[in-house]
């Protein structure tokens, strides 16, 4: 945020842009149009599509933290995992309704986010990074040890999920899963978009840029950080529940460092702090991974690595960063 220019016409343009920034632009409909078109053109890829949508929601929740509030974390899988296990444990113990499963997962992950956030957010920088890692590692060990409830390293078995609205059964081809995940992602995106365009969202950007100054103007920095941490955790929990319900299983991998790290990579590929980074980075990474792994199941990691190097060298700031630079554009908001 640079200081506004002194001359009046420029300032008016800035103010206009600021006032219009929450309005929908036609480009924002593109991801949804593409998702619906893919439903009909790639009939055999619905299972992959559903996982991509759920992961986009997960990446979106991470973007709220890293991109907007400037809270760096390497343990975001903790909340994904809490949501997945919450939905999974319910479904394995006689409560099979999927939508209420999502709500419970959001609550459980939100509570975990609030409780851990109240402690770890007292720190910042590398210390914070380590603390978030520790939270995820502790939860993973808990899930590993508590075998009677979580199934330990064998994973949680015996989940049964009812049809959505009692009608749409989760089928072998992933048709229901595709639409289900897409619809939930749409709602999550609406919520996230509203949030970051709100005054609360703007204050987060302020905290990211200069927390001391925000304190000086009287903003409750600590409280806002905990609120966004809780909201982001709840969204991550919904994403975890989506994956758990559509695949009918939860494993220890849901809480792993690998999952947190991979998510960060996907977000970086797309572009951090731009809301749509998740919509580009996640499909790019997951489709590349799927294709490489199908063509060369033994050495596909090499090709992913090569792809990552090229991406890092030639596409700094992620795909959206490249586009913005081409258009002489702006740094992330």
């Amino acid at each position: 945020m640079t200081a506004p220019a002194a001359d009046a016409p420029d300032r008016k343009a800035d103010i206009d842009a600021f006032a219009r920034r929450h309005k929908f632009r036609w480009t924002e409909a593109l991801p949804w149009a593409a998702a619906i078109a893919c439903y009909f053109t790639f009939e055999n890829y619905h299972a992959l599509g559903a996982q991509i949508f759920a992961t986009i929601l997960f990446a979106l929740s991470l973007d709220l933290l890293i991109g907007y509030a400037g809270i760096i974390t390497l343990g975001h899988a903790a909340f994904f995992g809490v949501g997945a296990y919450a939905a999974g444990i319910m479904a394995a113990n006689g409560f099979h309704e999927p939508l209420s499963g999502l709500v419970i997962a959001a609550l459980a992950a939100g509570i975990a986010g609030f409780a851990s956030g109240a402690i770890v957010l007292r720190t910042s920088g590398l210390t914070l990074l380590m603390q978030t890692l520790v939270v995820a590692a502790l939860l993973q060990e808990l899930a590993n040890k508590w075998t009677s409830v979580t199934g330990g390293s064998d994973g949680l078995l015996g989940m049964k999920i009812d049809p959505v609205f009692g009608v749409f059964r989760f089928d072998l081809f992933g048709n229901t899963a595709y639409i289900y995940c897409l619809a939930v992602l749409f709602l999550g995106w609406l919520a996230a978009r509203n949030l970051i365009c709100s005054p609360f969202g703007r204050s987060l950007t302020g905290i990211r840029e200069n927390a001391a100054r925000m304190r000086a103007i009287g903003a409750p920095v600590e409280r806002r950080k905990i609120i966004i941490y809780t909201i982001s955790a709840a969204l991550a929990g919904v994403s975890g529940a989506l994956i758990a319900q559509t695949t009918a299983l939860v494993g220890l991998g849901a809480l792993s460092l690998g999952r947190s790290g991979e998510l960060l990579i996907m977000l970086i590929i797309g572009g951090i702090g731009r809301l749509y980074g998740a919509f580009i980075g996640v499909p790019l990474y997951m489709i590349a991974q799927d294709r490489f792994a199908a063509v060369d199941p033994v050495f596909w990691y090499f090709w992913i690595g090569l792809f990552m190097i090229f991406d890092g060298v030639f596409a700094r700031g992620g795909a959206l960063g490249v586009i913005a630079r081409r258009r002489g554009g702006s740094p992330p908001q």
Binding site: A47, Q51, L172, T247, G251
Partner: peptide, 13 residues
């Protein structure tokens, strides 16, 4: 396991 389930699904369908 998630990836395993998905690739199995794809191998079948």
């Amino acid at each position: 396991p998630e990836t395993g389930k998905r690739v199995a699904q794809e191998l079948i369908t």
